[in-house]
């Protein structure tokens, strides 16, 4: 069973444009998610009432997957729509994270919460310092 999961993961990440994503990154990402995101978005990604949007099966996340590193780095302000609800509370920038940390959180979040896991190019993940406004 383990090896099947492993194979699936391997398959998922085999399409990313450079080296394979190590499973270690995912567990590191999970740890960081717990520390930096879960108090608001919850461990299961369900969010909080109408105040904090869900990540679990979020259409916003799916459509803006490439922006995730910048959302983590800069926070998010202004009204957004997730599913049939709109949200207005600002998400603060998550400070004290290295580029590697941000990358691992992205890998974990995009693996765990979308309806089908999303892989974004390492080039996007690695260049947050250049690509984020």
């Amino acid at each position: 069973m383990r090896s099947i999961t492993f194979l699936c993961l391997l398959f998922l990440f085999s399409c990313s444009d450079s080296e394979l994503v190590d499973l270690k990154n995912i567990s590191h990402g999970a740890e960081l998610y717990k520390n930096y995101c879960s108090n608001c978005h919850q461990m299961d990604g369900s969010g909080l009432a109408q105040l904090i949007p869900p990540l679990y099966q979020s259409d916003y996340l799916t459509e803006n997957a490439g922006a995730l590193p910048c959302i983590i780095k800069n926070g998010l302000k202004g009204k957004i729509r997730v599913g049939s609800n709109s949200y207005t509370l600002a998400m603060p920038a998550v400070r004290n994270l290295s580029r590697e940390d941000v990358k691992d959180i992205c890998v974990y979040v995009l693996q765990k919460f979308p309806k089908t896991p999303i892989v974004i190019a390492d080039s996007v993940l690695k260049n947050t310092h250049k690509n984020c406004p």
Binding site: N39, C40, L48, A49, L51, A90, P92
Partner: peptide, 16 residues
Amino acid sequence: FASCPTICPIMKKQMI
């Protein structure tokens, strides 16, 4: 406070 990044959302979840 509304912009609190740490424990407030957890508290509000419990208060709910």
